[in-house]
Design a binder for these strands. Structure first.
Length: 518
DNA sequence: CAACCTTTGAAGCTG
DNA sequence: CAGCTTCAAAGGTTG
């Protein structure tokens, strides 16, 4: 954020095409969704692209703004009512949205809320609006309780109503991200055509298009499906609720894309990853909280769902490391050498294909591999006398001013493998100075009122301490880092499990980056 | 059209 | 319980 230059540079992938045409986030984000809204609110004139207007306009909407919008809303409401009549989940979702809204989650204090009409923001505030305003009630069904009573059908546990008062100023669309397949599907179907195919696909993304048959899904309805040979196929795929970072990505992606004019998600994600680390504690807390809510909601909507369903779902993809990799998922040449040194990439890498250097075939990977692969992050292991966090902190220091160098080389220009690394000037990598302290955190500090069912015992219900993990490219032990310990030493540091940045992490790290010592 | 890339976090599985 | 694996989003790229 602050340090845009560095933040906008994907470690290896960045190819900035132009200086940054800053497009108003609000106009970029969820642009499809907004389109209709804008359509309805045309009279706003051309300034609608400006984020600052967003808030005002949002207010408009909520306040009943202009009559045109009002009319639009009315029609939308009626549409929703009819939908709601047949769709329990919709009601639930709306309820939840209202809940969040009334909890102060939604209104997005500081930030512009996209002026999308309620229908386009199905989860948000709709229920609240319906319940609290004089607008037509959504639910035909008798006692669909207004915001204060527990959600209808699926609710197994009462939803805590004393939601935290934290001011979660998260743009509305973020809150929409709740992964409720069916709802999205409904929305999609109701918004007739209009949307380009691509968008449509996205809308239904959380449910692998299976929604076609019946509108109600959820765990129950899944079974309702025809018992075809493999019900799996028929089952609507209920996706995992998004985690904090995913929510963050969803929100920020458009912004980053606008700023960087990058399109490649991999690159964007790198940037986002760094930004995430640079994010303030409170900011992250918002997302953690949001994610937690999403999980809660997800649990309520799909009590029987477990992520296992998705994992065992099988066919999905083998993804990530192939079995024959021997677990070596060392990142490819691209990551190691950067764009600058494409000459060093293996051929497939140059063609964006799978890196042959690491792709297994027993021996093959070796030569190079030894060089880098073993990077075992484990490395983090011990960093120096100070915890590795330490070195990492140091390295993050001054944000490198934009270093164009970054774009290619990416990694810290000089990170020493040893403890001394801590001094290494980081020329890069990091996001912002502050991050060092922040990243590891999570919202511990925040005193949430809500105790989610699942939340870890005592820890202030904070999400488990987020893995102390170096942002990409900052970890000298990270094999992705061309100048990593391993890269430099050519040594294979077997990651003897033990010390990795964090448990949670280690696994990941291991799975992603490396190892495999013959 | 599916898999890959890339990120972090959550959850399930395994030993 | 620690460690590992998979999936969630996203969109360009490739086979």
């Amino acid at each position: 954020m602050e340090d845009d230059n560095s933040m906008n540079e994907p470690l290896n992938l960045c190819k900035k095409k132009k200086p940054v045409a800053i497009v108003a986030p609000s106009s970029v984000v969820e642009e499809d969704e907004l389109k209709e809204a804008k359509e309805a609110k045309r009279d706003d004139g051309g300034r609608d692209a400006d984020a600052d207007d967003g808030a005002a306009r949002a207010d408009d909407v909520s306040a009943g703004g202009n009559s045109k919008a009002d009319a639009y809303q009315r029609s939308v409401y009626s549409m929703i009512r009819s939908l709601a009549a047949s769709e329990q989940n919709l009601l639930t979702a709306m309820y939840m949205g209202g809940l969040m809204s009334s909890a102060g989650l939604i209104p997005a204090a500081g930030r512009p809320a996209p002026p999308a009409p309620p229908f386009l923001n199905p989860y948000v505030g709709l229920w609240a609006a319906a319940a609290t305003s004089d607008r037509p009630q959504l639910s035909p069904s008798s006692d669909r309780a207004p915001a204060s009573s527990p959600p209808p059908a699926p609710a197994k546990k009462n939803l805590p109503l004393n939601v935290p008062k934290i001011d979660l100023s998260i743009p509305q669309h973020t809150q929409l991200s709740l992964n409720i397949p069916n709802l999205k599907a409904i929305s999609q179907s109701s918004k007739t055509a209009e949307k380009p195919a691509k968008t449509t696909a996205k809308w239904s993304s959380s449910m692998d298009h299976k929604s076609s048959s019946s509108t109600n899904d959820g765990p129950k309805s899944q079974e309702s499906g025809h018992a075809s040979s493999n019900q799996e196929k028929k089952k609507p795929h209920i996706k995992k609720p998004l985690n904090a970072f995913m929510l963050y990505m969803k929100e920020m992606r458009a912004k980053v894309v606008a700023e960087c004019t990058l399109k490649e998600s991999a690159a964007i994600n790198q940037i986002l990853g760094r930004r995430w680390h640079a994010l303030g504690r409170e900011e992250q807390a918002k997302y953690y909280e949001l994610a937690r809510r999403e999980r809660q909601l997800h649990m309520q909507l799909y009590p029987d769902w477990s992520s296992r369903a998705n994992t065992t779902r099988g066919k999905k993809r083998k993804r990530k490391q192939e079995p024959n990799d021997g677990g070596n998922s060392m990142k490819k040449c691209r990551a190691r050498y950067g764009l600058d040194q494409q000459s060093q990439w293996c051929k497939p890498c140059r063609r964006k294909k799978k890196c042959i250097r690491y792709s297994g075939d027993d021996g093959t990977q070796e030569s190079e591999d030894n060089l880098g692969s073993c990077g075992s992050v484990g490395g983090d292991t011990q960093s120096p006398d100070g915890d590795d966090g330490e070195s990492y902190h140091h390295s993050s220091s001054a944000s490198p001013g934009c270093l164009s160098g970054l774009s290619s080389l990416t990694s810290p220009s000089m990170i020493l493998p040893s403890p001394s690394a801590s001094l290494a000037s980081p020329s890069v990598s990091l996001a912002s100075p502050c991050m060092s302290l922040q990243s590891p955190l999570t919202p511990h500090m925040i005193d949430y009122d809500v105790k989610p069912p699942i939340v870890h015992n005592n820890h202030h219900h904070a999400p488990p301490a987020p893995p102390l993990r170096n942002p990409v490219g900052t970890n000298p032990h990270d094999i992705n880092n061309p100048l990593s310990v391993n890269q430099l030493t050519g040594k294979c540091i077997k990651n003897s499990s033990s010390a990795s940045s964090s448990p949670a992490n280690s696994g990941k790290e291991a799975s992603r980056t490396v190892i495999s010592v013959p």
